[in-house]
Design a protein around this nucleic acid. Structure first.
Lengths: 205, 205, 205, 205
DNA sequence: AATGAATGAGCCTTCATTCAT
DNA sequence: GATGAATGAAGGCTCATTCAT
């Protein structure tokens, strides 16, 4: 059963590098040391192969550190939120150059049905945990709408280093790489926590 | 001179719909009511056509309001920053489902050389103006590194509604559309301004 | 393994008929009863196919009699030279209307890199054997330069029936075909041998 | 009427360089500083242009020395023949790298209808003059068939330096260029004249 | 007299897929 | 279970040519 797995891995690399359309079956099979017909034999279709590759990628995406949970240290919600942000930033900056990360980024820009599956299965739980952490960190002072906005804001600040990577690299000096993950995370965390303290104070718009 | 423009528009639609590789020259020409050879005649290349489409898209992206400049109201930096954020969020949410938006999102996930040009020509100026506004709004209290991080954070919070659109739509109820632009913008602005007031206060990490 | 050979033969015919540029892959494949993609599959390229066709042609050019060697009858050099010339003329006149011949003629007028290979591999040995024969036939009385000139002269007299064929056919009545090979050869031989006997006698220029 | 002539010259260069099929109308027009449609406007056809180019080439081919005629010096036929051969060899070696020469060589290998015209108009007269010279030089001792063979042999010895140029350049050291024209011509002439003296003596075959 | 725009036919090539083995 | 040979559809591109101006 080695051949099938080889193809899967090769396909992940190829699709990450060139995308679904530009990535060719021949390239995948060559890289997997298999015959041209192997893809059709094992996966029936290029499309079906792609679907399986995405699942494979999703499964392997979390590899590394586990996501910090509120339940781990329910008494230090602020600290927990900081840990979560640090974990998320590290993960994003790390997977930037990874096959998995590039695959996901592509799916984002060019959604297929596979994205539905990914959203429900992989992203939703992560997002919900963040909601729990933020809620705890601000002492339950936010209504649902504000909470969601807060979460999206945090995710956005983290995500930009991943989705905007291509653009950031092409702008001025300030480069942000994996080695800056902790600095970035602490910056975001500080900002987030500070806003909770006085979240009822309005600024003029 | 109509044919060239027709092709440009058709190409924008096709590339936005299918991407560069999956979008075919034949499809574009059919849609433009022109001959297959027209692309070659007017743009020399599929690649060159794509490059021109991106520029065209960028030019048409800002349609509507002009970007608020610090120079407009140098005495109310905070207000100016709010205006800028509101403008940026509106722009992003507006172009979300647009050909322009999808085109840009694709470029981000799968950068071509065209992105270099876009970065220098289109994004850099916008990003620099934001830097000026933030610097003024916080009274010059941030060093360069912190200033950049602040800018990226703001952009990230806005951008997530654009780049993350596909994912957000697939998550829980909370939907954010163009009609929510002002609410979102004011939320981001509040957060940003507040953090300046006490930006020397450290939170535990 | 029949398809590849079929394509090779069809290609030889087509390239001989229309040349490299005017000869189309489609035509070749149709004539070979194969699919258009077959050329690419078996030869990768139109260019590579052409290269292989030339080699194939060269291999099949000598079909029939082997080249007479001086070593065959070292004691009758004059007779040997005659045999060689007869062999060469027959070969040229035979391949005149042949695909092989037309292919070679084209290569001569419009050399590609394939000609280099042909020159070293196929022509050089033949030319050197002629040198040996002439040297023996004239009793070694010629210096190297004169020997080379003599060889070129002989080859030229033979070759003109091949390279000049198209022109000769369009001139006056006198037609020279394969059936005249022996007459032509003996004429050339006589002339060559006679010049050796008195090769030190100068004529006024 | 400059444009038409410009196109004619450009076409000669392009066709000589790339041949009829590979040479493009656009290339010709660019090189002539004219519009793409100019060829069709002035010559109706690419094919017709080619025909006119050949005539143009033929007209300009003889530029330089005039062909020596028997009538010039009817009393020294041998000397005349030598002069003719020298003239012919010089001409061939000179036109080797010329557009005209390359054009003719191509026509030879890949005859079009244009060759018919060329044969009758340009080559026939030259060939007939040679016939007259040889007939005179050998004192009328040859019957028509032998005379023709003799002429072809002489032409062949000269022509090989032109048509075989590509091959000769790829063989051993002995290089023959324009500077060797006189040496070559005298070699051929000597050989030709000598064969007449004893043209009734047979050598064994 | 001359041209820029536009065309349609056709070419080489690539690709995912199938089929007999 | 796996493969080499072969296919057909399609794609980007080039080219000679035409047409309105």
């Amino acid at each position: 059963m080695s051949t099938k797995e080889d193809i899967l891995n090769a396909a992940m690399a190829v699709f990450a590098e060139h995308g679904f359309h530009a990535g060719t079956v021949r390239d995948i099979c060559d890289q997997a040391g298999a015959n041209v017909a192997a893809v059709n034999y094992h996966f029936h279709d290029k499309t079906s192969l792609y679907a399986e590759v995405l699942q494979h990628a999703y499964r392997n995406a979390g590899i590394g550190e586990p996501m910090p949970l509120l339940a781990d240290e329910p008494d230090h919600p602020a600290k927990q939120l900081g840990a979560w942000i640090a974990w998320y930033v590290r993960r994003l900056l790390h997977s930037g150059g990874t096959d998995v990360g590039r695959l996901m980024a592509r799916e984002m820009a060019e959604p297929t049905e596979a994205l539905d599956y990914l959203a429900k299965g992989a992203v939703q739980p992560v997002f919900m945990e963040l909601g729990r952490l933020v809620d705890a960190a601000c002492g339950g002072s936010l209504d649902e709408r504000a909470l969601k906005l807060q979460c999206v804001a945090i995710v956005g600040q983290c995500l930009v280093f991943h989705t905007g990577r291509a653009m950031l690299e092409r702008l001025d000096p300030p480069h942000f790489g994996y080695e800056d993950a902790d600095e970035i995370a602490s910056h975001i965390t500080k900002w987030a926590l500070r806003s909770f303290d006085t979240s009822n104070v309005d600024a003029e718009t």
